[in-house]
Design a protein around this nucleic acid. Structure first.
Lengths: 367, 367
DNA sequence: AGACTCCCCGGAAACGTTTACAGCGATCGG
DNA sequence: CCGATCGCTGTAAACGTTTCCGGGGAGTCT
């Protein structure tokens, strides 16, 4: 018994023991040199040479076990295909990468059980922290968030007093920006295509739409409101239903994907955008600018929210004792061709050279 | 000297030692029960109870160190925003998740140095395997791939004899499908908007386009070929350049993003699609169907390629001694409105009920 | 009854790294 | 010339888990 330890694992892969043996020093010295801390010139030379000869690469897992951190950060969103999350992911990835960490992404499908599973799995510490953007929130959920063993930052609305790092936006105000703008360009029958009302953003946007109309003293025709899902196909179907029973002169959509679906529905039924129906999306993703006509869209600062969430998370990882913080990003409206100030003209508006200065500009935050 | 080991880490988080002590058994027994292997009914009861009481959750890192696997699989693509990679990612995620693993995504930006860094980092075994879709390939690169210490599967074209698991498609043939179809519906001046020629897909598609025309005995007018980047903005700019100097009656695009850009350019300059110019994209992503008119697109089976790549990878992880395999996915053409067999009609058809009304205004596309 | 099998258990090693600690020689200051 | 300091080194512990191995008890077969 008692033989110290295999110097060469059966695997053949070099470990710090291999390097140390080859350099004729102890593993402690080898490790120190490899980490650039301490060591005499001679030792440094020998260890470096030995490491290079055997092609030594430190094992990330063993290092993690020792250092109690994995260098990974998780991001959980509903759908990694939604461009709004893509933009958020890009922003987060940039911050996270600059701290030398890597990103693990999870698609939750918006299902609470999936999110709960993820939160529970956090306990086994496979990541150093997590950014999650839940679209539905329950009490269990909230409990799991505040009781999480590793830092969690929430992107999105949350119960007001939840002691969790949180970066949110004011999507009610965002909807108001859209409504105000449409009224300002003379639209009166404004429709609304929303996502599910049992989601946090869906509920907030519905409330925002109603409040905005009420503020202007306009009575809402329920026929002008339709609900689908936060996806293209569902948005298009919802728009088709709405158009079948009502004749809006403008549509606000809770999402750019829905807006693209609505655009398709409008064009496919021979309506002109914006002459017959003005259209405004939400999230201001790349998609909005790819459409023809380019879509006006309410920016909810997804990239900015992602960036800030990542920074909050990194700070909390560095100092878990920090008090919970909350940050807010203001929405703004990007006006583009789909809601250009073209007066609703009679159908055969002959002039093909009608001037419509459709260059996008941003309207201020002030309502 | 002497004292065994802290039962309760200063941290306060329960370990298997905590559970074992509380249950009055050894850590070996505790571990066995927790893994569901062995243990008498009484032991099982005690350990389960103790684990529940202290809220024990096994530490994933320690487990990884012992088992020599992390349960993570990496995916490296050029741009996580490109819908083709989103679809691929979804397919991969499904397979990977069904094996109980998780996905780590990396955006390489198509830069070889980034990819090399990733490949080198593989050596520290932070993941069990990697799927990579390089758009540029060098010899160094190839060396790093074949010499990788952990399983790697490549999605995309590769040097013919590289001993690396690889799933590819025949994009030359894909381009041919598009060209054949356009010729069949009577188009003669077929343009091509490609991505960079120094990329593998760019080169293959260029060759495919030229070969397809040659096969039909058509001489290529170089004015009808334009190169940009595999992105929306670059595609749009490239299409604008092309349209400024030539008058195609059809456009093939190397990518759906490019095709969307081209569509925008066409519509913004008052051209009708497909009446004036038929349009075909490539990759057949969701985006193609979101457009109005819906875009024909050559499917290169991105989801299928992702699925197969994931399966190859899992099999190789299970048995690293497997010989390298290569799989091929056949392209197919999805014909939609943008290349419907509408004969090129004379311009002025002022029919107000024409199904695709031209938009009477121009957008900020510099001509 | 004795030998054999089977099952369960606990001690201890192992995964590969970092790091606290102590020893030791050399340098330096007094 | 001696003691303190400093820089370097090696031993060993620690991170938290799984698993090999040997011991022992209960049961079974001959």
């Amino acid at each position: 018994m008692g033989r110290k330890r295999l110097q060469e694992p059966a695997d053949g892969r070099p470990t710090v023991h291999t390097v140390a043996a080859r350099a004729g020093v102890s593993i402690a010295s080898a490790s120190r040199v490899l980490n650039g801390v301490g060591g005499s010139p001679e030792t440094i030379r020998k260890v470096r040479a030995a490491a290079a000869e055997v092609g030594y690469v430190p094992n990330a897992i063993a290092r993690s076990l020792q250092s109690q951190r994995t260098g990974l950060v998780a991001l959980a969103v509903e759908d990694i295909g939604n461009p709004v999350y893509v933009e958020m992911m890009r922003a987060i990835e940039a911050v996270v990468a600059s701290s030398g960490r890597q990103l693990v992404v999870h698609a939750t499908g918006g299902r609470i059980d999936n999110e709960m599973t993820l939160l529970r799995r956090l306990a086994n510490r496979y990541v150093d922290g997590m950014i999650i953007s839940p679209i539905r929130v329950t009490d269990d959920h909230l409990g799991a968030l505040v009781g999480s063993p590793v830092p969690v930052v929430v992107v999105g609305q949350l119960g007001a007093d939840a002691p969790v790092d949180n970066v949110r936006t004011d999507s009610r105000h965002g909807v108001a920006l859209a409504v105000d703008h449409l009224l300002a360009i003379g639209r009166r029958r404004i429709g609304f295509v929303n996502g599910p009302l049992d989601t946090v953003p869906g509920a907030a946007r519905d409330a925002g739409f109603r409040a905005a109309l009420a503020r202007h003293g306009i009575e809402l025709d329920e026929d002008l409101v339709e609900v689908g899902d936060f996806q293209y196909a569902a948005g298009r179907a919802a728009a088709v239903r709405l158009l079948a029973r009502a004749a809006p002169d403008a549509l606000v959509c809770a999402n750019d994907l829905i807006a693209v679906g609505a655009l398709h529905a409008l064009l496919a039924t021979g309506r002109r955008v914006p002459q017959d129906v003005a259209l405004i999306g939400m999230d201001d993703t790349e998609l909005a600018q790819m459409m023809f006509p380019q879509l006006s869209s309410v920016s909810l600062g997804s990239a900015e929210r992602g960036r800030r969430a990542a920074e909050l998370l990194l700070q909390r990882i560095a100092d878990p004792a920090l008090p919970p913080r909350r940050e807010q990003v203001q929405p703004s409206l990007a006006v583009r061709a789909s809601s250009a100030a073209t007066p609703p003209s009679p159908r055969p508006s002959a002039d093909p050279f009608e001037p419509t200065p459709a260059h996008p500009y941003r309207e201020g935050v002030t309502s």
